[in-house]
């Protein structure tokens, strides 16, 4: 038998990591749901800042004295992050479960058998996009909201203590939620289950705890992922909540744990 010919069309270009990054970048931007959801997030943030800013401005004189003293003009404009987290979290889930539910994941892992690398780099890319977009949109939302406030409504500027941190914190918070959603997506491999888990943890558990009387429930509340993580958005700190960086670190810990569990499952399971 003659020596069997080798078939390697052309030598691969670049390193393994760079190839995976390039591939995941192409995937990220080549489905419509990604740009659509990101634009929707930006619109929700800006519209929310504008409406809420106008609302507070027009009815400031009706507010009680206690409400006025605890008024946080920064958070008032950034609250729509609560809405944006639904979009970004769901998009995070979909970037993973979409692959599993269509079966595309098999093609992905056939092209790159290093499964952990694929998902870790996908998460890194998506997280970076969300961080940058979140921070940029948040700056704009802050500007839109503050432009509504005139005397006597207090007006925040980026130079004040904690304000810049809160504004850029939107990007940080949304980024962590996005990766949380991706981790849950890998663990469940199902859009429905992952969304239920994500929204359950972020929204349902805190509502349930606030219904219970007594110190036990009140004591747990600040340590829940969404409650802890969203402290970074507040300039005026309330009651027994965690500090902004403590809260963010705790949310990051939850997300990292979920991510680690996801990577372990990814390695162990059949695709």
């Amino acid at each position: 038998m003659s020596a069997s010919p080798t078939f390697t069309g052309s030598a691969p270009r670049g390193t393994r990591v760079r190839a995976t990054l390039r591939s995941e970048w192409i995937k990220l931007w080549s489905v419509r749901s990604v740009p659509v959801s990101l634009v929707a997030t930006a619109v929700a943030m800006l519209l929310g800042a504008w409406l809420l800013g106008a609302g507070y401005q027009s009815e400031w004189h009706e507010m009680a004295a206690s409400e006025r003293t605890s008024f946080d003009p920064t958070y008032a404009c950034l609250q729509s992050a609560n809405l944006a987290q639904l979009l970004i979290g769901a998009l995070g889930v979909l970037t993973v479960t979409g692959d599993y539910e269509t079966g595309l994941i098999r093609a992905t892992f056939t092209a790159t058998p290093q499964r952990g690398q694929v998902l870790a780099l996908r998460a890194a890319l998506f997280a970076t996009v969300v961080l940058l977009l979140g921070a940029t949109v948040s700056l704009a939302a802050f500007a839109v909201g503050q432009s509504q406030f005139t005397e006597p409504v207090p007006h925040a500027t980026l130079g004040q203590t904690g304000v810049l941190r809160a504004v850029l914190g939107v990007g940080l918070y949304l980024m962590l939620i996005a990766v949380f959603g991706m981790g849950l997506g890998v663990l469940t491999r199902s859009t429905t289950l992952a969304l239920t888990a994500l929204f359950g943890i972020l929204l349902i558990v805190p509502s349930v705890l606030t219904m219970l009387p007594g110190r036990g429930a009140e004591g747990i509340l600040p340590y829940l992922p969404a409650v802890a993580g969203s402290q970074v958005l507040h300039v005026v700190r309330s009651g027994n909540s965690l500090g902004p960086w403590q809260g963010t670190a705790l949310l990051a810990l939850y997300v990292a744990t979920t991510g680690a569990a996801a990577l372990v499952m990814l390695r162990r399971r059949d695709v």
Partner: peptide, 17 residues
């Protein structure tokens, strides 16, 4: 939702093609 071209391009990129 992906085009045939982008589907193949992402696979190619993953292997430096």
């Amino acid at each position: 939702g992906r085009s045939a071209y982008n589907h193949l391009r992402s696979l190619a990129a993953a292997n430096g093609i």
